[in-house]
């Protein structure tokens, strides 16, 4: 049975400082190396990165996160405020963890010699992407709970999300649920019993810095 992290605790599947584990999941690379690769515009091409679907999923997650960070930075510059980036660090950790191929999820085919599957990592990637496509919400962690390898076995999707202040949380959560359900229907044959969404972070833009009265 899969044990779930209580809602009030950060999800840590293993020691996030364990570089060897991170490298094993990303074809011998670390998330930092992938980030550098993006900085270089993926030039010169690195075959060991380009040939790895796990790296590709992580790179796409990094790109989306960077776009959000850039827009936040712009906002902060306008407000002359400083950000707390702890929540971004936790999303980065989950991008690395969830890019791993994981379990195999079967797809039906009439031939007895056919074995068609989609990896859990690919599914988590599209779930994260479905969420990140919505404005003012970022998917933190995403877990498929249940035996995904058995066709028609009902499973549950457990999602942690960060929502930006000022949004209607139940409405945004429902839009996220619908986007994920639609993506699962397109790419998998999973029977989804529930998509449980926990808004674990509320991003509030810091207040503008207070001018020093004495210097006036």
């Amino acid at each position: 049975m899969t044990e779930l992290t209580p809602a009030d605790q950060r999800f840590v599947a293993f020691d996030l400082d364990d570089t060897e584990r991170e490298q094993a999941g990303l074809n011998g690379h670390t998330l930092e190396q992938l980030s550098d690769y993006l900085d270089r515009g993926r030039v010169p091409a690195e075959k060991s990165i380009d040939d790895s679907p796990d790296c590709e999923i992580a790179l796409r997650g990094l790109e989306r996160l960077r776009r959000v960070q850039a827009s936040l930075l712009e906002l902060d510059l306008k407000r002359e405020s400083l950000r707390d980036d702890n929540w971004i660090a936790s999303i980065l950790d989950n991008i690395s963890l969830e890019a791993r191929a994981g379990r195999e999820i079967p797809l039906a085919h009439p031939s007895p010699t056919a074995r068609l599957v989609i990896t859990e990592g690919a599914v988590r990637g599209i779930l994260r992407e479905a969420g990140d496509r919505l404005e003012n919400i970022l998917v933190g962690r995403c877990v498929l709970v249940g035996d995904v390898s058995v066709p028609a076995n009902p499973i549950t999707i457990v999602v942690d999300a960060t929502i930006f202040s000022g949004e209607n949380i139940p409405m945004l959560a429902e839009r996220l649920r619908q986007a994920m359900h639609s993506a699962l229907g397109r790419y998998t044959e999973l029977v989804v019993a529930a998509i449980d969404i926990t808004v674990s972070d509320l991003y509030v833009a810091p207040k503008a810095s207070v001018p020093d009265e004495q210097n006036r």
């Binding site: 195999e104 031939s111 599957v117 989609i118 990592g121 990637g125």
Partner: peptide, 30 residues
């Protein structure tokens, strides 16, 4: 996946028709 499976199966058939135990197709990224 079905199209890939069928294309591999057709190619095997054309190129000598060896006995096939399994054709596995894995979607690793989308």
């Amino acid at each position: 996946c079905s199209r890939v499976h069928d294309a591999i199966a057709a190619h095997l058939l054309q190129s000598g028709n060896p006995p096939v135990a399994q054709i596995a197709v894995i979607v690793a990224s989308i």
